[in-house]
């Protein structure tokens, strides 16, 4: 089984639209949406949820206000400014302490040092993971709660479940929709992948972000290829990107022209190749064939 991860550096370059078309073109793949804090692939593939699991990313501290003596040790040891002097009064003190769950990093240091054992440190649910069926094959996706910690851990969990699903269903390819950026969720989604496809656009921002993301995958030693989406918006920068890719040893596997039918397809909950034929569909088909060739 091979694993392809689609990322972009810059957001909004067309990752999800391309992954949806790949899903429609693939014959024997499992799909995974690893953009867990702004997932969109389900809007096109309309998954029917078959199984759900809670995602527990880590622990959080909570002060039992009735037991708090207001000593302030928790506030002193917390490095994340998560301890507030906002708790309700109790029979001992007029003001107790309180943990801001959004600021809590889940380190447990406050609970360890609380002499009154007034701090509970327990696992919390940070999101949900779904195993679904779509018209293009099985799909694993997730929803991270607002401010949910450990998006990287959830990404890793989505990939693990998707890989197990592929193995048990005899599927030979896993297609992963990644997130923008170069941080924690991106690192979690590309680690150990067989191939990374970076979807970029011919803008100075797109090119700048491509450079950073290619450095990341290079540093992690993951084979990387690039596709220039909406290439005809600025042919000059497209040429510069092609040169940059060449110098970085990154194969350019496709160029897709700007086409209003991409938005039209999204409005119809359809991938581009399901929605239309013509040049755009041919370009995506050619990209898909090149990616399959690179994976082999």
């Amino acid at each position: 089984m091979k694993e392809l991860v689609v990322i972009s550096g810059k957001g909004g370059t067309g990752k999800t639209s391309i992954v949806a078309s790949f899903a429609a073109l693939s014959k024997n793949a499992v799909l995974a949406d690893c953009d867990v804090d702004a997932a969109d692939l389900h809007l096109v593939l309309e998954p029917k949820i078959r199984q759900e699991e809670e995602f527990k990313g880590g622990k959080k501290a909570k002060i039992i206000s009735a037991a708090c003596t207001g000593c302030g040790k928790c506030e002193e040891v917390c490095r994340f400014n998560a301890v507030l002097r906002d708790g309700p009064p109790n029979y001992l003190v007029p003001e107790t302490f309180l943990i801001d769950p959004l600021a809590c990093e889940g380190c447990g240091v406050c609970a360890h040092f609380c002499e009154d054992k007034a701090i509970k440190f327990r696992e919390v649910v940070d999101g949900e993971l779904f195993i679904s069926d779509t018209r293009c094959g099985p799909m694993v996706h997730a929803r991270l709660n607002v401010g949910g910690e450990n998006s990287g851990k959830l990404v890793t969990r989505v990939r693990t479940v998707a890989r197990e699903l592929a193995e048990s269903n005899g599927r030979d390819l896993l297609i992963v929709d990644g997130s923008p950026g170069i941080g924690c969720p991106v690192i979690a989604s590309v680690t150990g992948a067989d191939l990374v496809l970076v979807v970029t656009e011919p803008t100075r921002s797109g090119m700048h972000d491509l450079e950073r993301v290619v450095k990341l995958t290079g540093f992690m030693k993951i084979p990387t290829v690039v596709c220039i989406n909406k290439w005809d918006i600025n042919p000059e920068i497209t040429a510069q990107i092609e040169k940059l890719a060449d110098q970085s040893g990154v194969h350019q596997v496709g160029k897709i022209g700007y086409d209003k039918r991409v938005t039209a397809a999204q409005l119809m909950k359809s991938s581009v190749v399901e929605y239309t034929g013509g040049s755009i569909a041919q370009e995506i088909n050619a990209l898909w064939r090149n990616v399959v060739y690179e994976l082999a």
Partner: peptide, 24 residues
């Protein structure tokens, strides 16, 4: 996004402009 880096950036601000486009 909506996870920890975004929260770090927007917290303690006086107002947030949310930019979107009218697509699904």
């Amino acid at each position: 996004g909506t996870s920890c880096p975004v929260i770090e950036a927007v917290k303690d601000t006086d107002y947030v402009l949310l930019i979107t486009e009218p697509t699904p």
